[in-house]
Design a binder for these strands. Structure first.
Lengths: 228, 228
DNA sequence: ACATTGGGTCAACCCTGTTGACGTAAGGCG
DNA sequence: CGCCTTACGTCAACAGGGTTGACCCAATGT
C-alpha cells in the first residue's frame, strides 16, 4: 500500500499552527508544492514548513522520503483511473486505459517523473482489469497475462518518459531540443544519405510518440487475437 | 554533447595525489563508484575522494551534477552501440538495436536509472541509423521518422524502467514483488473472476516484458511496411 | 626567462534526511 | 469527573550533500 505506517490513527493533535495533519493532507500538500515550485522543491523540511508543522512530524506518517514518494505515485494513478469502466471493445478499452495513465502522469509531470518507476498497489489494480480484457479477446490465460504485462509496462514506461521530459526545467528542455536538431545538421550527408531526405519531415520535440506507440501495440495485439 | 565545459584543455596539472584528471577518467570513476556502491554513492565529494582530488576540481570539467549525469548517460549508450552495423534485414537490425540499448542500460543499472530520461547526443546518433532502416523498408520519409521515433522512444523508456527496477535496493525490489502478489491474493474472485483463472500463469517479477514488447512493435511495423 | 592563466585546493555557506529525547494533550477507562 | 497511558508534535543535533569565491602554483606560449 501507499502508507508504510498503517496503524489506525486516533489521538489527533493540532499542530502548533492549528493544522490537523493527515496522510491525505500531506500528500496533497506535497503535490501542490511540486506543482508550484518544481520537483526539487519537495523536501521534508519544506513540506513541513508548507504544512505548518515540524519536519520530523512527517515521520509519524511515512517511514521516509521513499514512502512519501510511493504515496504520491499511488495518488496520481488512483486519480487517473477513477471512474474507469472497461467497455465491450477490448482494444478501445485498452487504449483508454493507456491514455488515462498518460493523462494522469502529465497532470503532475514532476511528481510522476519522480515516482513513476516504483511499483505500487494502485498500478497492480490496473492489471486486474487489463488481463480481463485480453481474456475476453480470446487469449489463453498465460498469453493474456504475458501480453498484458508487456502492454502496460510499455505504457507506464513511455508515459513516465513523457512526464520526465515535461518535468525538466524549460532551459534544459530547450537544450535537449537543440541537441536533437544539431545532430541532423552536423551529420555528414555522405555517411547518412537517408537522413537528408527525412530532415524536413522530422517531428518537433514537442510532439510525443506515445499515441503512435500505443496504436502499434494494439495493432499487434489485435492481429494476434485468436477470435476475430 | 556530454561535456558542458567544452574548452580545449591544455595546462594539465597533476592532482595532489599525482593523478591526471580528465573527463574520461572522471566518468569512468563515477561508473565504477555507482557500480560498486550503488547510485546514492555518487556524490561530488565521494567522487573527488575516489579520484584523489578536491571535490571542487570536478567543476572545472562539468558545470554541475546534472552535466556529469548526462556525460554518464552518453557513455553508457555509446558503449552499448559501439561496433553496431545495420544488416540487410531491417526487422532484425531494429531488434538488435533494441537489445543493445537494453543491455547497455542493464550493464550499469543504477547509472542508467539515474540518467535514462535525459536526451543526449549519443541517443540522437542512434536515430540516424534507425530511420535509415525504416526507409529501406519502403516507408515514406515522414512515416519512417514518425514510426521510428515511436519505436525508439518506447525501447528507451522500457529499458530505463527495467534498469530502474534493477537499481532498486534488494529490499525494495522484494517489497515491490510482494505488492504484486498480494494484489492477486487479496482480490475478490467475484469481482475479478478472470484473474483467478490466470493466477497460476502469472509471470514472475524477475522476468521483464521487454522482449515481448519489442516483438509486438516489430510485428506492427512489419505489417504496416509497404513492400513485403 | 618571463608573463599568462588553467586548474587544483581550501574554507565556507546553506541545504538535505533522519533520529532520539522530551513533553503535552487527547482519549479510554474507572 | 479525573487519572494514566500513549500518540504525536516539537526541539536539537548529526552527518552528509552541492556549490562557490579566493587563493596560488605551475605549465605553457612567447
Amino acid at each position: 500500500m501507499s502508507t508504510r505506517v498503517p496503524q489506525e490513527r486516533r489521538r489527533r493533535r493540532p499542530t502548533r499552527s492549528g493544522v490537523l495533519l493527515s496522510e491525505d493532507l500531506i500528500v496533497e500538500t506535497a503535490l501542490r508544492l511540486i506543482g508550484e515550485h518544481g520537483p526539487e522543491a519537495l523536501s521534508v523540511r519544506r513540506l513541513g514548513a508548507a504544512l505548518g508543522c515540524d519536519p520530523s512530524a512527517l515521520y509519524r506518517y511515512f517511514h521516509g522520503t521513499d514512502d512519501l514518494v510511493l504515496a504520491i505515485a499511488d495518488r496520481i494513478i488512483g486519480d487517473a483511473m477513477a471512474g474507469f469502466v472497461p467497455g465491450a471493445d477490448w482494444v478501445a478499452s485498452l487504449r483508454e486505459m493507456a491514455l488515462r495513465v498518460r493523462a494522469g502522469y502529465l497532470a503532475h509531470p514532476r511528481a510522476a517523473a519522480m515516482a513513476a518507476h516504483r511499483v505500487t498497489g494502485r498500478k497492480s489494480e490496473i492489471q486486474a482489469v487489463g488481463i480481463g480484457l485480453l481474456l475476453s479477446a480470446g487469449f489463453e490465460p498465460a498469453a493474456a497475462a504475458r501480453l498484458y504485462l508487456a502492454f502496460i509496462d510499455t505504457v507506464l514506461s513511455h508515459a513516465a518518459t513523457d512526464a520526465a521530459f515535461q518535468a525538466l526545467p524549460l532551459q534544459q528542455r530547450q537544450a535537449d531540443h537543440r541537441a536533437w536538431r544539431n545532430v541532423y545538421q552536423d551529420l555528414d550527408p555522405v555517411v547518412y544519405p537517408a537522413l537528408t531526405a527525412v530532415r524536413p519531415a522530422l517531428p518537433g520535440m514537442a510532439d510525443s510518440s506515445f499515441e503512435e506507440a500505443v496504436d502499434l501495440l494494439l495493432e499487434a495485439l489485435a492481429a494476434r487475437a485468436p477470435t476475430r
